[in-house]
Design a protein around this nucleic acid. Structure first.
Lengths: 141, 141
DNA sequence: TTAACTGCAAATCTTTTGCGAGGAA
DNA sequence: TTCCTCGCAAAAGATTTGCAGTTAA
């Protein structure tokens, strides 16, 4: 079976952007890449500290901001007052938040993506970013 | 020409919810209803103070939270760290944010609304809330 | 070498809350 | 009368920043 094309690691993309690679940034990038959820800064700091306890939370804040400004990370807000982050290189998707449990389900619908583009164009804009969040309650059975 | 059905004022809906009507809440409700933009708490406080300078910002925070929990207001987040509010009774719409100017354009697309419902259902959820924000740059010409 | 980066602690910003006084029902 | 609400000021939570020492390139 064919395998999907290898994507550049977050670390490689940092380098490609000319960012200086420190030990701290290496660890933080690795933690983000390994994440299968949507960690906030506190969670990233905890995970990074498990690898290297010298990493301060200020550095995590500075690093996610830097990465986000470089377009390497996407900042998410689920309405609980904390920012969450995920690797921007992942295939685009939207989020459905389970209002009962806080669980976040990712999904991607090509038709809705197409509509986003079309609506922006109709309003006279080039679409640069977009965010769709659904909030729901699990149906019984 | 026919006129659209009269909607209950925010104040009436407060009363219908059994909320105690104080001078402060009356002013704040009136300010929200008169708003044609998406004011944050600071802006609401400033406008309320223009009517009655005795209204503290703590009361504005408490009131918007109360109104939101009663389902009378919708809380919006445009990614700048401050919550914004609008009357929940207004017809549903989404937002396109002009990344150059911060201007917010409202729109409503029936097809996208239908899709939101369909996607939630497909994932096994009943849709209770949703938020779509497009970020764009104005096309030349 | 040197500009960029880091940890620490203090500062900032938004939002919440304890308390005693005052007001709606 | 009896809670509920208010203003004030302090507290809390998330994020940013000044500073002086450290490090990648």
């Amino acid at each position: 079976m064919p395998h999907s094309p290898q994507k550049a690691t977050l670390l490689d993309r940092c380098e490609a952007h000319g960012l200086r690679l420190t030990d701290q940034r290496r660890v933080i990038a690795q933690v983000i890449e390994a994440a299968r959820d949507h960690p906030d800064v506190e969670a990233l700091h905890a995970r990074a500290n498990a690898v290297d306890p010298r990493i301060s939370i200020a550095t995590v804040y500075r690093t996610v901001k830097l990465f986000e400004e470089a377009g390497l990370l996407e900042r998410l807000e689920f309405g609980d007052g904390r920012a969450r982050y995920e690797d921007a290189e992942r295939d685009h998707h939207d989020h459905l938040i389970d209002m009962a449990t806080g669980e976040v389900i990712e999904f991607c619908d090509p038709e809705i993506e197409r509509l986003k583009e079309a609506i922006a164009r109709r309003l006279g804009y080039r679409l640069k970013g977009h965010r769709l969040e659904l909030f729901g309650i699990k149906l019984k059975r």
